[in-house]
Amino acid sequence: MMPVLRRNLAATAEAAETARTWIRTAISAGHPRISVTDAAYITAEMVTAALVHTPEGGLIEVHLFPARSGGLVIKVTDPNVPVGPHPGDWARISCIARNFGAGATAEGSHVMWCELPEVPSP
């Protein structure tokens, strides 16, 4: 089982690509039954949404952890008000993810998450 992993990203133009590269490596090494392509796409979309709402010098956190029912949860947190990806992005994410959502943390930060199912073995 994949351990809980976390990556802090500076709120820069490169954050989405950095997150995409990091999640590809993490999943390939620790959770091969998750679609790397889907995970990288969803992570980049959530980080891009977080960038819009993160002040210069702020940090975006990306967490990966096993889902209770198998699969993987990707969670992205930024320090600002709750706003998720654009509705069109959520539409595509809903076709890939088992479950997804957005809201506020107890500290007042914004969090987006999605749960990816495992890909069936061939």
Score class of each variant (00 low, 15 high):
residue 110 H to P: 00
residue 88 G to P: 00
residue 61 E to T: 09
residue 119 V to S: 05
residue 93 I to H: 12
residue 84 G to R: 02
residue 11 A to P: 13
residue 89 D to I: 14
residue 23 I to S: 00
residue 60 I to M: 11
residue 46 M to S: 01
residue 37 T to D: 10
residue 91 A to I: 00
residue 52 V to L: 08
residue 86 H to W: 12
residue 77 T to Q: 06
residue 119 V to L: 14
residue 101 G to W: 15
residue 72 L to M: 12
residue 122 P to H: 15
residue 50 A to H: 01
residue 90 W to P: 03
residue 66 P to F: 06
residue 29 A to D: 11
residue 49 A to D: 05
residue 25 T to N: 03
residue 69 S to F: 12
residue 120 P to C: 14
residue 22 W to H: 06
residue 109 S to L: 05
residue 26 A to V: 07
residue 105 T to F: 13
residue 94 S to Q: 10
residue 68 R to Y: 04
residue 1 M to P: 13
residue 56 E to M: 09
residue 3 P to M: 12
residue 74 I to V: 06
residue 99 N to K: 07
residue 11 A to H: 08
residue 119 V to Q: 11
residue 21 T to H: 07
residue 36 V to G: 05
residue 99 N to S: 13
residue 101 G to N: 09
residue 42 I to M: 08
residue 120 P to N: 07
residue 59 L to P: 00
residue 98 R to Y: 09
residue 56 E to S: 06
residue 94 S to L: 02
residue 87 P to D: 11
residue 54 T to Q: 11
residue 74 I to C: 03
residue 107 E to H: 13
residue 121 S to P: 00
residue 89 D to W: 02
residue 103 G to I: 01
residue 122 P to W: 11
residue 100 F to H: 14
residue 60 I to E: 02
residue 49 A to K: 13
residue 1 M to A: 07
residue 113 W to S: 10
residue 2 M to K: 01
residue 36 V to L: 00
residue 59 L to N: 07
residue 98 R to L: 09
residue 52 V to W: 11
residue 102 A to F: 14
residue 95 C to T: 15
residue 113 W to G: 05
residue 18 T to N: 14
residue 49 A to G: 09
residue 15 A to G: 03
residue 116 L to A: 03
residue 33 R to W: 06
residue 25 T to R: 12
residue 73 V to H: 09
residue 34 I to L: 02
residue 84 G to L: 14
residue 44 A to D: 08
residue 100 F to N: 04
residue 38 D to R: 05
residue 3 P to S: 08
residue 21 T to S: 12
residue 104 A to W: 04
residue 20 R to E: 13
residue 33 R to T: 08
residue 73 V to E: 13
residue 110 H to A: 15
residue 37 T to E: 12
residue 62 V to R: 06
residue 70 G to R: 13
residue 22 W to R: 03
residue 87 P to G: 10
residue 3 P to Q: 15
residue 27 I to C: 02
residue 44 A to K: 10
residue 105 T to K: 01
residue 36 V to S: 05
residue 14 E to R: 05
residue 122 P to I: 15
residue 20 R to S: 14
residue 23 I to H: 01
residue 54 T to M: 12
residue 32 P to H: 04
residue 19 A to K: 01
residue 59 L to E: 14
residue 5 L to I: 06
residue 20 R to D: 14
residue 79 P to Y: 15
residue 112 M to T: 05
residue 88 G to I: 08
residue 33 R to Q: 05
residue 72 L to E: 01
residue 108 G to L: 07
residue 55 P to I: 01
residue 34 I to W: 14
residue 31 H to L: 07
residue 97 A to F: 07
residue 1 M to Y: 11
residue 44 A to L: 15
residue 113 W to I: 04
residue 33 R to Y: 02
residue 56 E to D: 11
residue 45 E to R: 03
residue 75 K to D: 11
residue 67 A to G: 06
residue 117 P to V: 11
residue 44 A to H: 02
residue 111 V to L: 11
residue 27 I to F: 12
residue 122 P to Y: 09
residue 69 S to L: 08
residue 77 T to I: 10
residue 97 A to Q: 01
residue 25 T to E: 10
residue 84 G to H: 13
residue 101 G to T: 10
residue 94 S to P: 08
residue 17 E to D: 14
residue 65 F to T: 03
residue 88 G to H: 15
residue 120 P to S: 13
residue 71 G to K: 02
residue 88 G to S: 15
